[in-house]
Write a protein that binds this DNA or RNA. Structure first.
Length: 847
RNA sequence: GCCGAAGUGGCGGAAUGGCAGACGCGGCCGACUUAAAAUCGGCUGCCCGCAAGGGCGUCAGGGUUCGAAUCCCUGCUUCGGCACCA
C-alpha cells in the first residue's frame, strides 16, 4: 500500500442512498418487531409520548424521538427485549377546526395526516414497532374508553353533577387543569374562559389525592413532582362550625362551616365571608339587603373573570344583613358575600381574620371592619399593625384570646380545635386544591359518552353489548362550531335500553386526555377484541420502564394517567399503582427567535429538508449534540455542518485508513517520541477509555458528551491515519468499537460501514444493531503516566508528568525541586502539602 | 406575590469540591487547487508584554475550604409553572 490517499477509490458518504436502503432492509428482517411473549430476555418497555396528527412531524418530534430510539438500540445491544411502540393521539380540536374551515371530514383529515406522519417517522430510522400501532379515533380503540367509563360508573368513580364549570366559547367545557394563566384562558385555543352552570360528567379522582402525593416507585423529574404536589395542594387545618345569630328576619341557628389553616387566629375573626355561590346566601340575606346581594351574586357568577386579571384588584363584596356567632367567644360578626372566596375550595366560606391574612386585611380596610391582633411575638403585643401579620416564626404566642392567651401559637391552635371539638363545633380537616376530573366535552371529534337520556328512566348507561357507540361518519358542521351531534337525528334518537321507549343519546364526548391515559396498555394487544387490555401482557410488561416526552403536560397528561391507572387498579384491571417507573422530560426546541415554533410565526424548522441535505444520521446526531437533552433551546442549525463532517471523518478512517491528506505536514508520521508499540497502545487506550465514558453517558442520557467523546476518538484515529500502525489490529479494534458506540445514535452509517468491513472470517453477516455492546479492557485503558497539576496556595504554578503508581513522598520531592514551584515559594517553607483525589493534584500551602 | 429551573468565551456547551472553557460552530493563518468549493493542519477567554512570562476571569456581593463555576447566605437577571386556595 502506497502512502497516498485512497480517496479516489473510496466511495463518498452518501446518506440519501444508504439510509432508505437500510430502512427497507431492517423492515424485511423485522428487526424492530418485538416478540412480546419472549420472556427469556429482560423486558424493557420504552414509551415515548404519541404525537397528535397535526399533519407534519416537526423538529421537536425528532428531538424527543431520536434519542429515545438511541436508548432502544443501546438497550438491545445489552440483550434486552425492547418494546418501542408508536401511535397517534387522533381525537381533538384541530381536526374539527379544519373541518369547519375547509369542509373536510375530520376523519379523512386526520387519517391523511397520519399517513404523512408515518412516512416522516420512518425517515428517522427509528426502531418503532409499527405492528403495535394504536390510533385513538379508531372505534376499536375508543370503544374501550366507553367500556372504562361504564365500569367507572358502576363503581361510583364516574358521576354526573350540576355545577359551575369552566367554559371556553370554542372548546366548551374544560377540566380545571386546562384553564391557564391569571387571565384564565383555554390551554388549547387561548380564548377567555367563562363560568357556566351545567350538568357534566366527572371522574372521582380526588379520591386519590393523598395517594397521588406519594411518588415512591416512580422516578419523576423533580420539577414535575413538585408541580403535581402543588397542584394537588394538600392543606391541613380545621373545620370550624359557626352558627348564625337570630335577627328580626331570621331565627338564627344555621350552621356555617369554614375551613382554616390557622385555627390559632380564631379569636381574631371579626367578620365572615361566603362565596357568591354558597347555598346559604339566599336563605340568610335580609330583606332590605336582597336587591344588592342578588345583583352582586349575579354579576360575580356571570363575570368572565377577566376582571381578575390583576391580583391587585380591589376587593369587592356586600354585607348580607346577617351575623354569625364566633364559637370561641360568642361574639356577633357580620357576614359578607364576596368573590374573593371561592365556592369550589374548602367549604366555600371563611372566617375572616384581617390581622393575620392579607386578603382579609385588604377587605377590612376597604369596609372599615375591626382588625384585632391575636398572634404576636412576646413583647410586641401592642405594636400597631399596618399590614396583615402572617409571618410564622417560632416563639409567637396567642394574645387577646381569652384563656388561650400566652400559649405558643401552634399549640394554642390545636387546643382551640380540641376544645371546640368536644361539642362538635370543630374538627381537624384536610382540604385539597385538586378537583374531580370534568370529562364532558361539547365536541363531535371525540369518544361519545355511552349513556342515554330517557324521559321515563332518566340516565341509562348503554349496555356493554351495544358498544361501541359509533361516531357518525357523515358530519355537517353547517359552518359553525356547535357540536353537530346535537343536530344528528339518526345519532340522537334511540330506544331506551331499559324501557324501550323513545330516548336520546348523550351528545357530549370525552376529554381526549382519557385516550392518552391508558394507550400504552393497549399497545401490548392493539387488536384484542374482547377486552381493552391483555392481562398477561400487562402483567409482564408494565409498569413501563422508561417514558420520554415533554414537561408541558406535568399536571395534565402526567397526572391524569396516574389517576387512571389507580382507577383501573381499583377495578382489578391492573396490579400496579403507577403506570411508569421512570419519566424523562426532554427540553423544548424553540424557533430561532426564541419563541415556540408555530406556522403563524413562520419559525418552524422542517426536518425533511435537513434530512434531504444531510441525512437522518446527521440530524439525529446533531440534535443529541446540541446540548443536554433535558434543556432544549432556540433552534440554530449553524453547527450541523460540524456533525456532518464528523460522520464523514468516521467514514474516512473506516474505509481509508492509509490515506494521507496533502494539507497535513505530519501526515503519516507518528507523534514525536512515540514508537510503533507506544502508538498501538495509545490507540487501544483511547478506544477503551472512550468506551468507558460513552457507556456511562448512554446510561445517563448524556448524549451531548457522548457525541463529543466519539468526536475526540475520531480525531485521535485521524491523527494516526496513514501511519504504519493504521489498519493494524489495534486500529481495527478501535474502529470497530467506534462503530458500536455510534450505532445507537447514527444507525444507518454504522450499519453500512459494518457491512463494508465484512464479518469475521467464517461468520455470516449480522446487523451491527444485533451485536452485543463491547466490554472495556481495563488493562488497555489504564494510564502508565499521569500529568499532575501543582498548585501553590491554590494557584496553578506547574505541571509534572509522573508514573501512575508514584508514592507521595517521591512526588513531593519531585515537585519541590521544580523551578517554577521554587520561584512561587520564594524561599518560604511549605506549611502543608495536600495530595488531592489519589494523586490527581498537589497543592502546597504556605503562609 | 408564591413555587421551580437556570446564569460559564463571539455562539451551542464541558467540567457538580481539585488543571475553567472538553467537543462543536464561528473567526484568523497555512497546505492542496489555475481558482473556488470540499478536504486537511495550526491558532483562537480578556488584558499587559517582542518574548519568556505575568495579571484578570464562570451574573454581583459576602462566607465556608488548603482549594469553589460547583457548597452556604444576600441580591440581580432570564425562563417555566401557579393565580385571592383561607
Amino acid at each position: 500500500m502506497t502512502a497516498t490517499s485512497d480517496r479516489a477509490r473510496v466511495e463518498r458518504y452518501d446518506p440519501s442512498e444508504i439510509e432508505p436502503r437500510w430502512q427497507r432492509r431492517w423492515d424485511e428482517l423485522r428487526l424492530h418487531s418485538t416478540d412480546l411473549s419472549n420472556g427469556s430476555r429482560r423486558r424493557y418497555y420504552l414509551l415515548t409520548m404519541y404525537p397528535y396528527p397535526s399533519g407534519d412531524i416537526h423538529i421537536g418530534h425528532w428531538y424527543i424521538k431520536t434519542p429515545t430510539d438511541a436508548i432502544a438500540r443501546y438497550r438491545r445491544m445489552h440483550g434486552d427485549n425492547v418494546f418501542l411502540p408508536i401511535g397517534f393521539d387522533a381525537f381533538g380540536l384541530p381536526a374539527e377546526n379544519a373541518a369547519i374551515a375547509r369542509r373536510v371530514n375530520p376523519r379523512e383529515w386526520t387519517m391523511s395526516n397520519i399517513d404523512n406522519m408515518r412516512r416522516q417517522l420512518r425517515s428517522m430510522g427509528a426502531t418503532f414497532d409499527w405492528d403495535a400501532e394504536v390510533v385513538t379515533c379508531d372505534p376499536d380503540y375508543y370503544r374501550w374508553n366507553q367500556w372504562f367509563f361504564l365500569q367507572f360508573l358502576k363503581a361510583g368513580l364516574a358521576y354526573r353533577a350540576n355545577s359551575a364549570v369552566d367554559w371556553c366559547p370554542n372548546d366548551g367545557t374544560l377540566a380545571r387543569e386546562q384553564v391557564e394563566g391569571a387571565d384564565r384562558h383555554c390551554w388549547r385555543c387561548g380564548a377567555k374562559v367563562e363560568k357556566r352552570d351545567l350538568d357534566q360528567w366527572y371522574l372521582r379522582v380526588t379520591k386519590y389525592a393523598d395517594e397521588l402525593l406519594d411518588f415512591s416507585g416512580i422516578e419523576f423529574p423533580d420539577p414535575v413532582r413538585i408541580q403535581q404536589t402543588n397542584w394537588i395542594g394538600r392543606s391541613e387545618g380545621g373545620e370550624i362550625v359557626f352558627a348564625t345569630a337570630p335577627s328580626d328576619h331570621h331565627p338564627g341557628g344555621d350552621e356555617i362551616r369554614v375551613f382554616t389553616t390557622r385555627p390559632d387566629t380564631l379569636f381574631g375573626a371579626t367578620f365572615m365571608v361566603l362565596a357568591p355561590e354558597h347555598p346559604l346566601v339566599e336563605r340568610l340575606t335580609a330583606l332590605d339587603r336582597r336587591a344588592e346581594v342578588e345583583a352582586y351574586v349575579a354579576q360575580a357568577v356571570t363575570e368572565t373573570e377577566i376582571e381578575r386579571l390583576s391580583t391587585e384588584r380591589e376587593k369587592t363584596g356586600v354585607p348580607i344583613g346577617a351575623d354569625a356567632i364566633n364559637p370561641v367567644n360568642g361574639e356577633r360578626i357580620p357576614i359578607f358575600v364576596a368573590d374573593y372566596v371561592l365556592a369550589g375550595y374548602g367549604t366555600g366560606a371563611i372566617m375572616a381574620v384581617p390581622a393575620h391574612d392579607e386578603r382579609d386585611y385588604a377587605f377590612a380596610e376597604r369596609f372599615g371592619l375591626p382588625i384585632r391582633r391575636v398572634v404576636a411575638a412576646p413583647g410586641s403585643e401592642d405594636e400597631p399593625l399596618d399590614s396583615a401579620y402572617v409571618a410564622h416564626s417560632a416563639g409567637e404566642v396567642l394574645v387577646n384570646s381569652g384563656e388561650f392567651s400566652g400559649l405558643p401559637a401552634d399549640e394554642g391552635g390545636r387546643r382551640i380545635v380540641d376544645w371546640l371539638a368536644r361539642d362538635g363545633r370543630a374538627k381537624a380537616a384536610v382540604t385539597y386544591r385538586l378537583r374531580d376530573w370534568l370529562i364532558s366535552r361539547q365536541r363531535y371529534w371525540g369518544t361519545p359518552i355511552p349513556v342515554i337520556h330517557c324521559e321515563r328512566c332518566g340516565i341509562v348507561p348503554v349496555p356493554e353489548a351495544d358498544l361501541p357507540v359509533l361516531l357518525p361518519d357523515t358530519v355537517d358542521y353547517a359552518g359553525s362550531g356547535v357540536n353537530p351531534l346535537t343536530r344528528d337525528e339518526a345519532f340522537l334518537n334511540v330506544a331506551c335500553p331499559s324501557c324501550d321507549g323513545p330516548a336520546r343519546r348523550e351528545t357530549d364526548t370525552m376529554d381526549t386526555f382519557i385516550d392518552s391515559s391508558w394507550y400504552w396498555y393497549r399497545y401490548l394487544s392493539p387488536h384484542k377484541a374482547d377486552g381493552p387490555i391483555d392481562d398477561d401482557m400487562v402483567e409482564s410488561w408494565t409498569p413501563v420502564e422508561q417514558y420520554t416526552g415533554g414537561a408541558e403536560h406535568a399536571v395534565m397528561h402526567l397526572l391524569y394517567a396516574r389517576e387512571f391507572t389507580k382507577m383501573m387498579r381499583d377495578l382489578g384491571l391492573v396490579q400496579q399503582n403507577e403506570p411508569w417507573k421512570r419519566v424523562f422530560n426532554q427540553g423544548q426546541i424553540l424557533g430561532a427567535d426564541g419563541e415556540r415554533m408555530s406556522k403563524s410565526r413562520g419559525n418552524v424548522q422542517d426536518p425533511d429538508e435537513l434530512v434531504r441535505r444531510y441525512g437522518a444520521d446527521t440530524v439525529r446526531l446533531f440534535l443529541m449534540f446540541m446540548g443536554p437533552w433535558d434543556q432544549g433551546g432556540p433552534w440554530s442549525g449553524s453547527g450541523i455542518g460540524g456533525v456532518h463532517r464528523f460522520l464523514n471523518r468516521v467514514w474516512t478512517i473506516t474505509l481509508d485508513p492509509h490515506g494521507r491528506e496533502p494539507g497535513d505536514a505530519d501526515a503519516g508520521i507518528l507523534p514525536a517520541g512515540e514508537d510503533d508499540a507506544a502508538a498501538r497502545a495509545q490507540v487501544r487506550a483511547a478506544a477503551h477509555r472512550t468506551l468507558r465514558a460513552v457507556t456511562e453517558d448512554y446510561e445517563r442520557f448524556h448524549f451531548n458528551t457522548m457525541v463529543a467523546r466519539l468526536m475526540e476518538l475520531t480525531n485521535t484515529l485521524f491523527r494516526y491515519r496513514g501511519t504504519p500502525i493504521a489498519g493494524g489490529a489495534e486500529w481495527k479494534e478501535a474502529v470497530r468499537l467506534l462503530l458500536f458506540m455510534l450505532a445507537p445514535a447514527a444507525p444507518h452509517i454504522t450499519e453500512e460501514l459494518w457491512e463494508r468491513l465484512g464479518p469475521p472470517p467464517g461468520k455470516p453477516w449480522a446487523s451491527i444493531h444485533a451485536h452485543r455492546w463491547p466490554k472495556v479492557d481495563e488493562v488497555a485503558a489504564a494510564e502508565a503516566t499521569r500529568e499532575v497539576p501543582v498548585q501553590v496556595n491554590g494557584k496553578l504554578r506547574d505541571k509534572v508528568t509522573v508514573a501512575t503508581g508514584i508514592d507521595q513522598a517521591e512526588l513531593e520531592a519531585l515537585v519541590l525541586a521544580r523551578d517554577k514551584v521554587r520561584a512561587a515559594l520564594a524561599g518560604r517553607a511549605p506549611d502543608r502539602i495536600i495530595h488531592a483525589g489519589g494523586g490527581r493534584l498537589v497543592n502546597i500551602v504556605v503562609r
